[in-house]
């Protein structure tokens, strides 16, 4: 037990801020959790402040300086049009984070709600939702994306819609199975016997037990979404050139990988760092949310 909780053994109930602070300290106490948090903060700060940090205008073409290796002027070199890759990676981070955080957040919230409804609701509703989830899952992502693009035209929003709709069933199924397992657990009966209402049971007793694995899944989904965005952009269904995104940087670099590998490397490193950061953070968050997994006594 930490110092704070020993002190709290006296009387007062811990406030919301206090428990938040305690959770943060738990994350920081583990090396991987701390590393994850640092990486995530680093990625977010560099994306938010990209316009300040970028030494060049990301779309400024300078054909004479094309495909230069990393130098003091161009930290990560230049691409085939002589654009500064470092600046493009920074600005591209904005898009990557926007797509992944917004669409995963949406998919998570909708999937969570539908999963809870399926788990708690009547049998027919459960069956109907499962059928819906399975039909969405059985549809090839690219075909689905093509259909959405025909409807709405290629844009970042299209990418996000595709990601949200294809990810909802994954979260929904997971929440449903966990809810089903918990619904008739004895502690839920005990809460009902105390007079707890429906929303209290969902919010205080089901949700905390469901959210842990969901966080892990979501954090591991972030790199997946970044690659979906890259793939769809490559097919011309996502971000249009010349807007920089990590996906387009990678795709641009492929053609020159034998002579000048740095565009691919420069585009790949942020993807790897973001993936690792969110995965470590997600894993340590799960441990914090589940007292049974804490490594303390």
């Amino acid at each position: 037990m930490s110092d704070t909780s020993v002190k709290a053994a006296t009387t007062e109930m811990p406030g919301a801020w206090q428990s938040l602070w305690r959770s943060l300290k738990r994350v920081l106490r583990e090396p991987l959790g701390a590393l994850g948090l640092v990486l995530v903060v680093f990625v977010i700060v560099s994306a938010v402040g990209a316009d300040l940090f970028a030494p060049f205008e990301p779309n400024k073409i300078d054909i004479r300086a094309k495909l230069q290796p990393p130098s003091a002027e161009h930290l990560l070199g230049t691409d085939q049009l002589g654009r500064d890759i470092f600046s493009r990676v920074l600005i591209g981070g904005q898009i990557a984070l926007k797509v992944s955080l917004v669409s995963i957040g949406l998919a998570l919230v909708i999937g969570l709600t539908l999963g809870l409804i399926a788990g708690f609701g009547p049998r027919w509703l459960d069956n109907a939702l499962m059928l819906l989830f399975d039909s969405v899952r059985s549809f090839p992502t690219v075909m689905f994306a093509l259909a959405v693009v025909t409807l709405f035209g290629p844009s970042l929003t299209t990418v996000m819609i595709v990601v949200v709709i294809t990810q909802i069933p994954i979260y929904g199924r997971m929440v449903r199975s966990q809810t089903l397992a918990l619904r008739d657990a004895e502690f839920i009966l005990a809460e009902r016997a105390l007079g707890a209402g429906f929303f209290r049971i969902i919010g205080m007793h089901i949700l905390p037990n469901v959210v842990g694995p969901l966080l892990i899944l979501a954090s591991m989904d972030i790199p997946f979404v970044i690659t979906i965005e890259a793939g769809l952009s490559f097919l011309g269904m996502g971000v249009r050139p010349p807007t920089p995104s990590w996906g387009t940087i990678l795709n641009d670099g492929y053609s020159y990988i034998y002579n000048t590998p740095w565009p691919v490397i420069a585009g790949g490193i942020p993807v790897i760092l973001t993936t690792l950061g969110f995965t470590f953070l997600g894993e340590s968050l799960r441990d914090v949310f589940d007292p049974r997994l804490r490594k303390e006594i």
Binding site: A185, E186, L189, M204, P208, N209
Partner: peptide, 8 residues
């Protein structure tokens, strides 16, 4: 044990 909510 099972009748106590595990995360509280």
């Amino acid at each position: 044990v099972g009748s106590l909510s595990p995360r509280m």
